[in-house]
């Protein structure tokens, strides 16, 4: 029994160690910024991976929840004078409620039909954020007040690296726990065969709704962090391309692998930075690399490599 627990916690410990040790190699605040962005996106991706990798449901509108979280910490303090940390929680709750209400009807849809429904939801959020300029500043966006906790204001990239790092590890643990719970097992059954799960007495609709709500809250917190970190937010945060990017992070890293969520975020945040040396060709190369990864590591980077390494060892 002891051994099983160790096995489970090993990746968490490894990642914690990396997050703690890595900054010693950071030459400047720019690296902290990249690190913080990776961790913030990884948080959203863990949530989405719960939905896609474990429950087998696609969402092409998850950036919508990123947007709700982001604009909560922008509008709340700006218009109502509420403290940022409170708005972050309210935003997460709001995202949860919205996900619950939207999820009830649309999670009955299957496969690509669910994809187009979530896509529509994400677009609706982006359209509202763009049009309600009185509150959101329109397409040019709005500035976001700094997060102040007990008189300490989180300003630099290093501060946000640590905040995002701690939250990501918390989110990681929560996700692991969730997977080991009865809900998690039921979800995997749904992933494998929805009808079989139904026959076995799993309340499929309810479980799917639960996980959709939770994954929305992950995205919302990540969105809030992104807004507080950047200090300025535009409706792009909720856009279609952002949603696609999140899905790409899940799939590249590996569906159903929580470590993969981090790896997917690393690849898609760091790669565009590294590719700038190729100037005009950066976009073409980015597309090519995504294709090559998916062709040769088709189950995603982490699961595919894990299998390969395991094969070599034998």
């Amino acid at each position: 029994m002891r051994k099983i627990i160790d096995m489970r916690l090993l990746p968490v410990l490894a990642i914690t160690a990396i997050v703690v040790v890595l900054p010693y190699f950071f030459p400047s605040a720019y690296y902290y910024r990249i690190g913080a962005l990776v961790l913030i996106f990884a948080l959203a991706v863990v949530g989405l991976n719960l939905l896609m990798g474990f429950a087998g449901q696609v969402s092409l509108g998850h950036a919508g929840f990123l947007g709700i979280g982001a604009y909560s910490v922008a509008i709340g303090p700006g218009y109502f004078g509420a403290p940022s940390w409170l708005c972050l929680f309210v935003g997460a709750m709001l995202s949860g409620v919205v996900a619950f209400l939207v999820g009830r009807p649309i999670l009955r849809l299957k496969g690509h039909y669910l994809a187009v429904a979530t896509l529509g939801f994400g677009l609706l959020v982006a359209i509202v954020l763009t049009n309600e300029a009185g509150f959101t500043g329109g397409p040019d966006g709005m500035s976001v007040p700094k997060l102040v906790l007990f008189g300490w204001s989180a300003r630099g990239a290093d501060a946000w690296y640590w905040i995002a790092g701690a939250t990501f590890i918390g989110g990681f643990l929560l996700a692991l726990n969730l997977m080991q719970s009865p809900t998690g097992r039921a979800l995997q059954a749904i992933h494998d065969s929805e009808i079989a799960a139904l026959v076995l007495g799993v309340d499929v609709a309810r479980k799917k709704l639960t996980i959709f709500t939770i994954s929305a809250m992950y995205a919302s917190v990540a969105g809030s962090y992104l807004a507080l970190f950047n200090g300025h937010i535009t409706p792009d945060v909720a856009g279609f391309l952002r949603s696609i990017e999140l899905v790409a992070m899940v799939v590249l890293g590996g569906m159903g692998s929580i470590v993969g969520s981090l790896v997917g975020a690393v690849v898609l945040v760091v790669l565009p930075q590294a590719l700038t040396v190729f100037h005009e060709y950066e976009q073409a190369l980015l597309g090519l690399i995504v294709m090559v990864f998916m062709i040769f590591l088709r189950r995603g980077i982490v699961p595919s490599l894990a299998t390969k390494f395991a094969g070599w060892r034998k």
């Binding site: 896609m52 696609v58 496969g111 696609i244 899905v247 790409a248 799939v251 590249l252 569906m255 005009e280 060709y281 950066e282 976009q283 073409a284 190369l285 980015l286 597309g287 090519l288 690399i289 995504v290 294709m291 990864f293 998916m294 062709i295 088709r298 189950r299 995603g300």
Partner: peptide
């Protein structure tokens, strides 16, 4: 074709990669 047998989501991701690639090439 080289990714034959991959899941539908992986194949869709390949087409998304292809779309980024074609767009990036077209602008050049």
């Amino acid at each position: 074709e080289p990714a034959r047998g991959a899941s539908a989501v992986s194949l869709i991701m390949i087409t998304i990669g292809a779309s980024i690639f074609l767009r990036g090439t077209a602008q050049i």
